[in-house]
């Protein structure tokens, strides 16, 4: 399984150039049964990343472009009266796929946003009184444009909590960008990609992640980190218990894709900025430093 996941990382990295860390984080997020929020400028490869991951993992992929006039029914689906049968027939919306790319999620109205977020939380949708389960696995990659915020509805903190991780892609480095410019059309490459995993294998991996060993010593460390967030003067409010669970789950997935069957403190440290970044509010935010700042803040905690 470890080698298969490595192949996925390699295959994705061949198309999304120079972003191996983000690819791994996205994969870990998926294995941890969490949803991913990518916050970045348009055109840095968010859509390509989602598409490549979906293809490599053999998932059914749908993309939803959020706009100001998007309605919940546009996402969830609608029942239409069929004249021949004389019955209402449900037409599932784009949310009925295994991997959803929710592009520019902050452009839609809060009502539409919450429709998607509730689907993410519940793994099911309720339309016109009927509850319909979403496919397994179900994974949402949402993107958000942090700069051009005119006429947008930024997600509130409580909603951000639905995402396991928040990452930024950033500009490619010089060498990666050169390869990108000189290479073939990305879309062609995606089309040539063959699935490396099937849904069953992915689910098995997800189950394995859940069973990964977290020793007492490691739980001590996680608790020390949570405790620190609640005491530290850097933050307005500390991390919630749900954030703690998310941190542990993310660390498990990270250990798993690194081929280990137990979690070490380094796993927690690796995923920490991406899991707590969007759940914490700093007293004095320094947007230029991002994950590095969070790592620095949590380095005040000694590993027990």
């Amino acid at each position: 399984m470890y080698s298969l996941l490595e192949q996925v990382v390699t295959a994705t990295g061949n198309i999304v150039l120079g972003k191996e860390r983000q690819i791994r984080l996205a994969l870990a997020c998926l294995l941890a049964r969490g949803h991913l929020l990518i916050e970045d400028l348009p055109g840095v490869g968010k859509t390509t990343l989602a598409h490549v991951l979906a293809t490599a993992l053999g998932l059914r992929f749908n993309r939803i472009q959020f706009t100001a006039d998007l309605l919940p029914a546009d996402i969830l689906g609608i029942s239409i009266y069929e004249r021949e049968s004389g019955e209402f027939q449900f037409h599932p919306g784009p949310v009925f796929a295994q991997l959803i790319l929710a592009d520019e999620i902050n452009r839609a109205s809060p009502k539409t946003q919450s429709a998607l977020l509730e689907a993410m939380e519940e793994q099911q949708v309720t339309i016109e009184g009927a509850t319909r389960p979403l496919p397994e696995p179900f994974f949402v990659i949402a993107t958000q444009n942090p700069i051009n915020q005119v006429g947008t509805f930024p997600l509130p903190e409580s909603q951000l909590d639905r995402f396991l991780m928040r990452i930024e892609l950033g500009y490619p480095d010089r060498a990666a960008e050169r390869l990108l410019l000189a290479g073939r059309e990305r879309r062609e490459l995606v089309a040539e990609l063959r699935p490396l995993l099937d849904a069953g294998q992915l689910q098995a991996a997800q189950n394995a992640v859940r069973r990964l060993k977290t020793s007492d010593a490691l739980l001590d460390y996680v608790q020390a980190l949570l405790d620190h967030s609640r005491r530290s003067p850097h933050f307005l409010a500390g991390l919630s218990p749900r954030a703690g669970l998310a941190l542990l789950q993310g660390a498990r997935a990270w250990a798993y894709i690194n081929g280990r069957d137990y979690v070490v403190p380094e796993d927690v440290q690796e995923v920490l900025p991406y899991i707590v970044g969007h759940r914490l509010q700093a007293v004095r935010d320094d947007p230029g430093r991002g994950p590095a700042q969070i790592t620095a803040w949590f380095q005040e905690v000694a590993i027990p």
């Binding site: 070490v264 380094e266 949590f298 590993i303």
Partner: peptide, 9 residues
């Protein structure tokens, strides 16, 4: 070893 440094790091 820095206090925050994991053994492997």
């Amino acid at each position: 070893r820095n206090p925050y440094e994991g053994p492997q790091t």
